[in-house]
């Protein structure tokens, strides 16, 4: 009885919430919705990451779908206000819940779901936790959300064509996560960096701090006009947009190595490393110690 009531309420809520997301056209044919700098709540529908879409002559590619089925549906509603073309591709920049949980909203048009080759395995290992914590954070707003199942996997690079508009996909070695994928739109020189780029909101290390610094080096060589960061403004100048994040990660790596050389324990290191960066980032206290833990347990294996 309780279960039935829950489903019924959820269906009502979802039906009542087909309002379209606010999107900004950051370059011709490229639209981005800006996530808020907060944790997922029933009110924000998990909409804490930047998500967007690119329109070609024949079809549309969605790049990240948001933190819940409802956010995905609101993104689809935004697309339908702008273009009737089919959504042929859903690209997942990595496996974090705020980027992938809207995939289900696009199932009706049977898009090719694309991701880094490592994504299925890494997501499978985390899916149970992601669903449980999103349910407890969002409650009714999360109903109906499912784990995506990408079938087109990118090991190194791949290209897709939206009709006179080619997108170039690049898979990275472990950096923000072990499944980071960027999307480059040749037509406008726009790069969707996913969470390889955090602006304003503190980066979170769920892969490798050294790998991430290397990824930034590699990204800098991309000749782009602008970038869409995974978190931050909808569009930012390239490559200056990378500067703050690179400095933060460099500080974390350098100070962690120093702590290790001084024989500081993990606990001591988490209390001191990176503190000079506090004024520069939103949600600093929620993630910095965790980042230091990740850096410490990675770097303690260096000779």
């Amino acid at each position: 009885m309780i279960l039935l009531a829950g489903i019924w309420l959820g269906a009502t809520a979802a039906a009542a919430d087909d309002s379209a997301l606010t999107v900004t056209e950051i370059a011709p044919g490229i639209f981005v919705h800006q996530g808020v700098h907060a944790e997922a709540t029933p009110e924000n529908l998990g909409g804490i990451a930047n998500i967007g879409f690119i329109i070609g002559d024949d079809s549309i590619a969605v790049i990240d779908t948001g933190g819940s089925l409802r956010e995905g549906k609101a993104l689809l509603a935004a697309i339908r206000q702008i273009s009737p073309l089919p959504v042929r591709y859903v690209i997942n920049t990595h496996f974090h819940p705020d980027h992938i949980f809207g995939n289900g909203a696009f199932a009706a048009s049977h898009p090719e779901v694309i991701a880094h080759a490592n994504l299925p395995r890494s997501l499978a290992a985390r899916a149970g936790d992601y669903l449980a914590s999103a349910r407890s954070a969002m409650g009714q707003s999360f109903l109906g959300t499912e784990i995506p199942n990408p079938k087109r996997l990118v090991g190194k690079t791949d290209d897709i064509d939206l009709g006179h508009r080619r997108l170039h996909l690049t898979a990275f070695p472990p950096a923000h996560t072990d499944a980071d994928l960027t999307v480059y739109d040749e037509k406008t020189g726009t790069i969707f960096a996913g969470d390889l780029l955090f602006m304003e909101r503190i980066p979170s290390i769920d892969g490798s701090v050294l790998g991430w610094l290397k990824a930034i080096d590699k990204l800098r060589r991309v000749k782009a006009q602008r970038v869409v960061p995974g978190h931050g403004p909808v569009s930012a100048p390239w490559p200056a947009a990378l500067d703050d994040e690179e400095r933060y990660l460099f500080v974390i790596a350098t100070e962690t190595r120093k702590a290790l050389a001084n024989g500081e324990s993990l606990r001591q290191a988490t209390a001191t490393v990176g503190q000079s960066e506090r004024p520069n980032w939103q949600l600093f206290d929620a993630y910095n110690e965790r980042n230091v833990t990740a850096a410490y347990t990675e770097l303690e294996w260096e000779e």
């Binding site: 490592n118 290992a125 985390r126 936790d129 472990p174 072990d178 490798s208 990740a294 294996w301």
Partner: peptide
């Protein structure tokens, strides 16, 4: 919260390559 069921490894390929190494 979440440590037991949290994914054991951030970089599974590395973990396999270095399995059993000690320091």
């Amino acid at each position: 919260a979440g440590g037991c069921s949290a994914p054991a490894v951030k970089t599974p390929a590395e973990a396999v390559a270095h399995l059993g190494e000690m320091k």
